[in-house]
């Protein structure tokens, strides 16, 4: 496969994953913001959504309003925000279009359709109904794309590079979400298990659509340590860091089997997975959750760069 094609597909995977993460984040935030403040539904729900998307500085720089309408428009349809859903889809589509031949008609139609649908909303949102509609549209479009890719694409380089990009992005998103909220996950004095934090934790879980999963896995009340355990180490939930790295390594192995050689990216991914599999949540908390996550994010970036280098993007 052409290196440029591989690079574009990898970024199709990343951009779509990023757009999807944002839809979940907004959905969870809408819910959190709807709670009375005595239940943790503080007016700063949208502020923390910005933080969880790591877009606070840009939001300030562009001088967008900090209320629901301002932040939700900034995250969804703002064409000046390079990571808004609109721009993510635009870029995913541009990447897909430049390598149109590497995608099946169904997969291309899903991306093109998503872009056309989102474009219809323009660059401003008039109401919350519109916001909810937009979120639903994107969610469905992502499912359609996944289904189209899964059902129609050859299991070859094109498919694996998309999945690889998506897995790297997913790991990055989960880690950043946890890092922004890490203080909420730490045991701190009297508020442990308090009512306020409960809703914050469930919001975290909702953002990665893992609230129900949590209950199935632990059959227990939501507790911060277990939230972290679930999202970092659990191998059943597809957005946990360990699951992401299992997938990354599997995709790299598939690529290596096709190409007959392995490279530095394999070693980095295998090392990363080894560390996650050998870790326990107690030790991670003992050594500092924030440090752990910061380290993970930069290692994940290094892996992304190593992949680009190895396949000559």
């Amino acid at each position: 496969m052409l290196s440029r094609t591989a690079g574009s597909l990898y970024w199709v995977g990343r951009y779509l994953e990023r757009a999807e993460y944002l839809t979940r984040l907004i959905e969870a935030t809408l819910r959190l913001a709807a709670l009375p403040s005595s239940y943790g539904g503080a007016g700063n729900a949208w502020d923390s959504a910005l933080a969880a998307a790591w877009m606070k500085p840009l939001h300030e720089e562009l001088g967008r309003p900090g209320d629901e309408q301002g932040v939700s428009a900034f995250l969804t349809v703002d064409s000046e925000n390079p990571s808004s859903i609109r721009v993510c889809l635009e870029r995913a589509r541009a990447n897909a279009r430049s390598v149109r031949t590497a995608l099946t008609l169904e997969a291309w139609e899903a991306i093109n359709g998503a872009w056309l649908d989102v474009q219809k909303f323009g660059t401003r949102l008039e109401s919350r109904e519109q916001l909810v509609q937009l979120i639903d549209t994107v969610k469905v479009a992502m499912l359609v794309f996944d289904g189209a890719a899964h059902r129609t694409m050859l299991r070859g380089d094109a498919y694996w590079f998309i999945q690889l990009g998506a897995a790297i992005e997913r790991a990055d998103n989960t880690a950043r979400l946890l890092d922004v909220k890490y203080h909420l996950l730490l045991p701190h004095g009297e508020s442990v298990g308090g009512g306020l934090d409960y809703f914050q934790w469930t919001t975290i879980l909702r953002t990665v659509s893992a609230l129900t999963a949590y209950r199935w896995v632990y059959r227990d009340a939501v507790q911060p340590l277990k939230v972290a355990d679930l999202l970092i180490l659990n191998t059943q939930i597809p957005r946990s860091l360990t699951s992401c790295y299992q997938e990354i390594l599997r995709r790299l192995d598939q690529l290596a089997a096709g190409h007959g050689r392995r490279g530095p990216a394999h070693r980095l991914a295998a090392h990363g997975l080894g560390q996650l599999e050998g870790a326990s949540i107690d030790r991670i908390f003992g050594n500092g959750l924030h440090e752990f996550l910061g380290n993970f994010i930069s290692e994940n970036n290094r892996l992304g760069n190593a992949i680009a280098e190895q396949y000559l993007f």
Binding site: M1, L2, S3, R4, T5, A6, V99, R100, T101, D157, L255, H259, Y311, L312
Partner: peptide, 20 residues
């Protein structure tokens, strides 16, 4: 393959494409 100029290069008068 659908290639752009950047995907191709010439070495010793032979054209190659950059692949993974």
């Amino acid at each position: 393959e659908l290639v752009e100029g950047n995907d191709l290069f010439v070495r010793d008068d032979v054209v190659y494409m950059r692949t993974t």
